[in-house]
Every structure is written in C-alpha cells, then in structure tokens.
Computed example of a mutant assay.
Amino acid sequence: MPKITVGLAMTLLIIGNIIGVFSDALIKTLPADTAIYQFVLFRQLTAVLILLPFCLFSNKQSLLAGLKWHFIRGHIWLLGAIFMVFALGALPLATVNAIFYTAPLLMLPLAMILFQEKLTSHSIAAAVLGFIGVLIVVKPTQINWAAIAALVVALTMAVNNLLVRKLPQHHNVFQTLMLTNLVGIPAALGLALWEGKPWNWTPMLTATGSNTFILIYAGICVMVYRAIEASKISSAEYTGLLGAVVVGVLWFDEIPDLSLAIGSSLIIIPLIWLAKVEAKIKQTSKII
C-alpha cells in the first residue's frame, strides 16, 4: 500500500464521509416505534459478522493486545451509535450531519490536550470558519434534546478518532473495527434486554446496510488518523455535509434553506483553501 500523504488522507476522508451519509439515511428510515437498543445490538452483531471473514485471513499475532483501548473505544462507539439513532429520528438529515461535523472542530483542542499537537494558523482559521458555518446551519435558537444528542455523537467520533493512536500498530483495519464492535456487544445486549420490547428482527436488514456504509467510513478513519496528525486533515470531514444535503433532498424531501447554503459555504470554502495551503507547504518543503 502506498504511503498515505496529507492529500491522499483528505481525499479518503471526503470519500468516507459521503459514504457515511448513506448509513445515516438508512437509520432515518426506521419506523418511529423501533426498539432503539435492539437496533444498536443488531448493528454490533452484523458488524462482527461482516468483518469476521476478513479477520480470519489476517495476521492473528497478539489479537488481544491493547484490549483496554479497544474496550474504551468500543463503548464510546456504542454510546455514539445510540445517540445517533435518537438524533436522526428527530432532525433533518442535513441538520444532524452539520452537528456531526463539529467532530473535526472538537478534535483540534482534544489533539492538542491529549497528544500535544501544534495547531497551525491555517487549521485554526479553517476550524473557526467551519464552526461559524455549523452554527448558521443549526441555528442555536433551535437547539433541543435531539441537537444535543447529535453533539454527543460528534464528541464520541472525535475521541474515537484520536484514540486510534493508542491501538497496537500490528492490528489492521478489519481487526480494529471488529474488536471495537465485539467488545460492545455485552453492553448492547444488556441494554436491549433492559429495554423490554418484543424482539423484532425486521430492522436487521437496515442494520446490515447501515453498518456496511459506516464500517467503510470507520475503516478510512482508522487508516488515515493513524498515519496523519488530526489537525492537518480533520477539516476534510466537512464534505459529507454536502452529501447529506443532496440525499436529504432526494430521499426525504428535506428542502434546504438559505442558512444551510451560507453555513455550508463557510464550511467547504475553508476546506478547499486549507487543502491548497497544505499542498503549497508540501511542495515548498520538497524544494528546500
């Protein structure tokens, strides 16, 4: 596999975020009376089943190494999955995705605190403009419990992406994703039993489809954030917002308003600018 550069990492994140939108869209199609904890359990189970064949042919050296960090990430992932279902059931797809994309903003201070990463003036400027764009999209006066749930999802995404560095380097993407889901199954099962609703296996197909898309996104995150500092590439996560707008219009008839257009511009334009700046810096360093 070729070395992952900043440009390649940002490209992969753009593709991953667009794919991830379809995972959200499938969750949004769930009936209002769906047993949420059952559905989350189905997602955990189908993820393990999807990933297991890939793991069987992977290097099995010290598979349980770093289990503590897998355990922590797995339960953070589970928490995010639960709040994601709540948020998507109550908010328009583009709005909830706009809140999800505060994750790159949250990653910048977290990376500085946890890993002493240095923030460049370019990444700070892009993050500030992006954050303003998110506020315009969300409209702070309309924030409710569903918006807070989406913000919790963003926080879990940010923490999980940064904790990738704590995982053993010899674990490949498939092993990492399988362990993340596997360790959370007991807790998910406990929540489903506590929920006390009759078992309904109909959402299993939706869980499988949603999982397939989100696992592709998560795999890309594991790969790129392990290779590149978060502050250099996290702004690329914003591009999924455009995908959410398009899918929201075509699938759910959610017509965007002017504030969404303005906010999205403040998110995407700094992203394009940051990519050009990083490319120029890289080119200059090669010349030197």
Rank of each mutant, 00 (worst) to 15 (best):
V173G: 05
R226E: 02
A111Q: 03
S264P: 06
A127L: 06
M204W: 10
I220K: 00
A187T: 09
L114C: 08
W201P: 00
A125I: 14
Q142V: 09
C221Y: 03
Q61L: 11
G209R: 05
Q283R: 13
K276T: 10
A261D: 10
A35K: 04
V96G: 02
A90T: 08
W145G: 05
V153G: 01
I262D: 03
R43D: 01
L45Y: 05
N161T: 06
F100D: 00
N211K: 05
L64Q: 11
T5R: 06
T95W: 01
A126W: 07
W145Y: 13
S265Y: 12
G66M: 01
P140G: 11
L110H: 04
A9H: 04
K282G: 12
G190N: 07
L56K: 07
Y225R: 03
V159M: 08
K280G: 10
V128A: 10
A275G: 09
L88W: 00
V128E: 08
A127T: 13
W273P: 01
L79R: 04
M157K: 05
S235W: 07
D33V: 13
F100K: 02
A98I: 07
I228G: 01
V6G: 00
T120I: 08
A25L: 03
I124T: 11
V249M: 15
T180G: 04
K197A: 13
G133S: 09
T102K: 06
L105V: 15
V249I: 15
L250I: 15
I267R: 03
K286H: 12
P104W: 01
V48K: 08
I220E: 00
I124K: 09
V247H: 01
Q61W: 10
E229R: 13
M10A: 11
L106G: 00
F83G: 00
L162R: 03
E117K: 05
L45H: 06
V277M: 13
M107I: 10
T95H: 03
K197V: 07
Y101F: 15
G263E: 06
R43Y: 02
L182Y: 03
F86H: 12
M178T: 06
I113S: 07
V48G: 05
E117Y: 05
I132Q: 04
Q44D: 07
F213T: 08
I262T: 12
V183M: 07
G248W: 03
I18L: 14
N161E: 06
L271E: 01
T34P: 06
L162C: 11
L8V: 13
K282P: 00
L129T: 06
L258M: 14
N172G: 11
L64R: 08
L64Y: 10
S58R: 04
S23N: 13
V128T: 12
N144F: 14
V249A: 10
W199D: 04
F115K: 07
D24G: 10
L41S: 05
L41D: 02
M84G: 05
A279N: 12
I216L: 15
R73F: 02
V40H: 01
L8Q: 08
M223F: 09
F174G: 00
